[in-house]
Design a protein around this nucleic acid. Structure first.
Lengths: 250, 250
DNA sequence: AATTATAATATGCCTAGACATATTGCGGAA
DNA sequence: TTCCGCAATATGTCTAGGCATATTATAATT
């Protein structure tokens, strides 16, 4: 009664694709093709297990993946129903600037423009989310791609959370890279907005004053402790964030 | 030998939290606390199953979730190792404007500014990704929040893919909403950039000319067919995209 | 007719065991 | 010493079956 598990399925199947994935794909096709419209109720797990000739848990895995994709809603007793009008949401990956450029084969360099250790001002405290007076490291730097200014970075590091940053000069290594290699973060929040370049920004990025720029702010936590706050400013007409919705693999 | 499955665990556990989730949390804590640093190899599934007193599949579920979070890497024979310096990526959800405003309790209205049916120009063809000459519906409209201009929308709809859009006037219902309720999409791509408001944009959004604006472009596919291309322009100083990294529930 | 108790149903989660597969380490042969 | 084949190991996936729980439908009662 247990024996034919893996053997039977590997014989019956194409070979390397998991059975639950095949079932997931088959059900997904029914949904996106419109054969099962929004509101349609799927057969029960027992029934699907019978139809596909597999254990109920295998069906459960496939249906669970569909639910994670928000393609269906599952409720006990009520069953699984198609959830078709998918909410307009997408997955945006915000990468490390350096890794991004290196992946594209573009020479990268970080240039430090300013470095100060101070007790958090009211403004620092608000941005970083720490009490005023907390020791912070303020860094300003320029990301260069192929020699040209690519992005301006303004960063605050909570020295209570990362005391070893006090000794680091950050003359050539980018603080983002440095932090990423040392401090594991557990939560992050991004805010993306647009702003007009002021005189400083225009000078560093070598763009016209008032030019529209893309600003990405990131706050990073390690559990409940604030690690760093960073604002990266890109010339708006030269840089775009691209997000492609992808189906998560099962 | 099968009997005590659910019973034993539900007796031993707090009650409603799945055992695999408890194990996931316990292991995650070891990692984010630094007790298990990057590169550390976790005990094998068999060993963990022994330690936690559960079946190997339950451990596999927890480890699989950690792997999905990129907290660990799993390789056969090599085992599971901590992957700590997490790549800087985040999840950005780009919602339907109307739903977003209504969720915040802000009155919403859509106002049509222009509507044309035409054969795709070279520019249309490039934006929508269809051959020139394909019939398209061009729509321009304004999203109003609490009466004030909130965003300007420029949209192209592929009438080959959505012929029924030809009969719809879109005077009050937003085309995004309309499409979402009818056409299931399977793939989407977003591009986020910044631009300076030209005269038209400034007039409609009631902002100064040259003001930095956030522009979100979205291309939508149904399988391989292009459905629609839309560009939504927000006043940059009034609107921000917020993305919070969240741990996906197990 | 309205309300309440009860039974049926579908999912949620788990166990114990099995086969499959990739990878690593080791011993023997060239 | 280097290279190749074999065995050990850890994960990947599946099966068959079970208890738990939420929800709905139905029957009983007021």
């Amino acid at each position: 009664m247990i024996m034919e598990g893996g053997a039977a399925s590997s014989l019956a199947r194409t070979g390397t694709v998991p059975r639950s994935r095949e079932i997931y794909d088959a059900l997904r096709q029914k949904i996106v093709s419109g054969e099962w419209p929004a509101g349609h109720r799927l057969p029960s797990e027992h029934e699907l297990a019978r139809q596909f000739g597999c254990a109920r848990m295998t069906i459960g895995k496939a249906l669970g993946a569909l639910a994670e994709q928000r393609l269906v809603t599952r409720r006990r007793r009520a069953g699984t129903t198609v959830n078709m009008p998918r909410p307009q949401e997408s997955v945006l990956e915000i990468h490390d600037i350096e890794a991004e450029l290196l992946a594209a084969g573009i020479p990268y360099a970080y240039e430090s423009l300013a470095r100060h250790v101070r007790r958090a001002t009211a403004r620092d405290a608000g941005a970083l989310g720490v009490p005023p007076g907390t020791p912070v490291l303020s860094l300003t730097g320029l990301h260069r791609a192929a020699g040209r200014a690519h992005a301006l970075e303004e960063r605050l590091i909570n020295l209570r959370a990362v005391p070893e940053a006090r000794a680091e000069r950050f003359t050539a290594i980018s603080p983002g890279r440095w932090l990423l290699q040392r401090i594991p973060w557990t939560e992050a929040e991004h805010q993306i907005g647009a702003l007009n370049a002021d005189a400083d920004i225009a000078r560093w990025l070598a763009i016209r004053r008032n030019c529209a720029c893309l600003a990405i702010e990131r706050n990073t936590w390690r559990d409940t402790q604030r690690i760093t706050h960073v604002r990266v400013i890109y010339p708006g007409d030269q840089h775009r964030l691209v997000a492609r919705f992808r189906y998560r693999p099962l």
